[in-house]
């Protein structure tokens, strides 16, 4: 028997949206930290490290996030590694985000003119100090619009976590739809929620792009 779609369902979806936001934030922070390491390794003077990172980035950018998630959650059990949904989601989101942010930031690091390195060199800054005080601040400033833009992709990617049972928006929507069978309303509200989360981010990205134009 089906029941009617009720206001209570909207509240459930709003609660689930908290998970979507939380997962997105986690992906952004953890993926950002690993992504910074990926970007630095990608422009490292050590060739082996550079090539390893090219492999890492290609692998993660060249396969669907859903497949990565399924391999980590279900696939690893076959080699004796049993991960719960939380750990699987955390690892999958971190890997996925780090590959993309790493590549965005690598481009921005390489975009800082050589003359900035030279100016830092003649002032006597060490290699680490050059990165910390001269190169990274400029690269990250330039990367802000693209970085915030990618955050929108992360938010949408979290919807795939429903397949491993995460109670985020998509999962709850499926559950509600199963008992109400009103897909247009349920998924419609779902879309509106994603839109409301993503729109400010997109707008912020555009704003940053305009604001930072010509700064660095």
């Amino acid at each position: 028997m089906f029941r009617e779609f009720a206001w209570l369902d909207v509240i459930s979806l709003l609660r689930a949206a908290q998970w979507t936001i939380l997962l997105s934030l986690f992906a952004f922070v953890a993926g950002g930290l690993v992504g910074l390491a990926v970007a630095l390794a990608r422009v490292s003077r050590i060739a082996a490290l550079r090539y390893a990172m090219i492999g890492y980035i290609n692998l993660l950018q060249g396969t669907p996030f859903l497949i990565q998630l399924l391999v980590i959650y279900f696939g690893l059990t076959f080699v004796g590694i049993r991960l719960d949904a939380w750990s699987s989601a955390a690892i999958a989101l971190t890997l996925y985000t780090s590959a993309f942010l790493g590549e965005i930031w690598r481009g921005c690091i390489e975009g800082v003119p050589t003359t900035q390195w030279e100016a830092a060199e003649v002032l006597g800054l060490s290699h680490f100090q050059k990165y910390l005080y001269v190169i990274l601040p400029q690269a990250l400033l330039v990367s802000l619009p693209a970085t915030v833009g990618f955050l929108v992709q992360i938010v949408k990617a979290t919807s795939l976590l429903s397949v491993i049972g995460f109670a985020e928006i998509m999962r709850i929507a499926q559950t509600i739809n199963n008992v109400t069978f009103q897909p247009f309303i349920v998924y419609g509200i779902c879309a509106v929620l994603y839109f409301l989360i993503c729109l400010p981010l997109s707008r912020f990205s555009v704003y940053l792009e305009r604001r930072l134009h010509g700064v660095a």
């Binding site: 003359t115 900035q116 030279e118 100016a119 830092a120 002032l123 006597g124 800054l125 100090q129 005080y133 001269v134 601040p137 400029q138 400033l141 700064v215 660095a216």
Partner: peptide, 21 residues
């Protein structure tokens, strides 16, 4: 081409090496 650091103020440009180096 001067090569000043665009993200630092004039003072920041001049004090960077004094402080960090």
């Amino acid at each position: 081409s001067f090569n000043l650091f665009p993200h630092l103020s004039v003072e920041g440009n001049v004090t960077l090496a004094l402080r960090k180096v």
